[in-house]
Design a binder for these strands. Sequence first.
RNA 1: GCGGCGUUGGUAAAUCGGUUAAUACGCCACCCUUUCACGGUGGAAUGACGGGUUCGACUCCCGUACGCCGUACCA
Length: 500
Amino acid sequence: MSKVRVRFAPSPTGGLHIGGVRTVLYNYLFARHHGGTFVLRIEDTDQTRFVPGAEDYIFKCLRWCGLEPDESVQKPGAFGPYRQSERKAMYRQFAEQLIASGHAYYAFDTPEELTQMREQFKTAENPSPQYGAQTRMKMRNSLTMDAAAVAEALKGPHVVRILMPEGERVQFTDMIRGEVSFDTGLVDDKVLLKADGMPTYHLAVVVDDHQMEITHVFRGEEWLPSAPVHLLLWRYLGWADKMPQWAHLPLILGPDGSKLSKRHGSKYGFPIFAMNWTDPRSGDFTEGFAERGFLPQAMLNLLAMLGWNDGTGQELFSLDELVTHFDISRVNHSGAVFDFEKAKWFNHQHIQRMNAAQLAPLVKPYLPEADEQLLLPVIELVKERCTLLPDFGSQAGFFFTAPQELDIAGIQAKWKEPYRNFFETLATSWEGISTWSDTADIEAGFVGLAQDAGLKKGELMLPLRIMLVGGKFGPGVFDILKLIGPMEAARRVRMALTKL
RNA sequence: GCGGCGUUGGUAAAUCGGUUAAUACGCCACCCUUUCACGGUGGAAUGACGGGUUCGACUCCCGUACGCCGUACCA
């Protein structure tokens, strides 16, 4: 039985980026497809990065999407406690164990000394020297100091670093990329335990995954370079046989080809987060897909297709369909550029797949004046021209309130004086009717009056449309008439006439 | 700089050695619609470059170029 774990930190500002949503989605799909357990864990290692409210926000987003985990940091199961701060002592114990076995060491360098080292060894060819094979013997650590000095220094602030072996090749099979290997001597000695006693991601992730008995890990490709550190840790801690399988997902890119970020959202005008988020510290606001008018199933569908396909050419999937079709081996290797136009197309398609009753509650916020009786038929009539939920406001608002402004110029462009008489007669005829039963009858009556006046139906359609809806848009005129009824239609025609 | 990962039309992409290299979004044209959309039909547009291997390469191998990610006591 597989146990899939997704683990991530809120973004530095606290929002939930769609790249994060996709990572959760692929975890979810894999777990559900194989009947496994889906575990969600949110990082709380770095206080400076942990934004108030961010955790609740993430769960709110996942609830909206329908990607609820079986286990999470908020619902500790038999494997708790889950908060890292409550487990500090345990992480230290594993760090000490690594030191005892010669796979890690204490380091006492101050931040100043570290920057000084980087300055000192920096060359034109090597702008950022690592704390590793080349430099560690020149630094202040338990490798270079004698036992007494180390014992003394241990009373002060210190960190634990992994000792990367030289001349060794670490290799593993990534579920997406196949064989991947690294020369360990070229990887730096990552800090495992920080001066405040908290573990870094590198230590925490393997200790936690081991204790939670995780079998599969899906994460972004940006983690690939630190995979050798994790591999070695699993080995050094003696858990090599329990190590999970890894899958490094391709990145989601912005239109310029770099990793999709908030910056792209504001630059190109599309949402980047799942739902609206305001950074409580800076007050920075970032728009979400939800509030922009996306259906959660459409967002999930489009994210799923950004890096994966089932090979058949099918693009439209429900979440359940994704679960049954998902195949990790068909995930692409290269990053995918997010295309907002295509994203909107997905949403349009998913709106068309819903019926009026399903759409009604989602659409109501955009139609505050909506009449309950009329709402469903109106939604049915206009949905095909709506791509985002707010479009229902602009496409259907006129059914419930007369247009505030009329495109008078549009009427006057081809206006002829006899029209006035015709429209007055038309309004009068409608005022004598209580209700319309059939669009064909409405049309027949309209054509009849036009003939009486010696006018052609065609030349009268556009003016009538504008009188009813305010502009050159909307469904068929007679469909509109049937829904708003003769009294209201007559009222709008007369109102328009006064403005001409 | 070093390391890793990538590279099929503008974008997402199929192809698992043999095809006129699918399809979708976007774009253009026409049709439908006396509105705007939807829809329909058609069109322009693609294998980074150079070597191999092979009867045959977009598919396999090597190199080059380019791009991205990483190179923090952030994740």
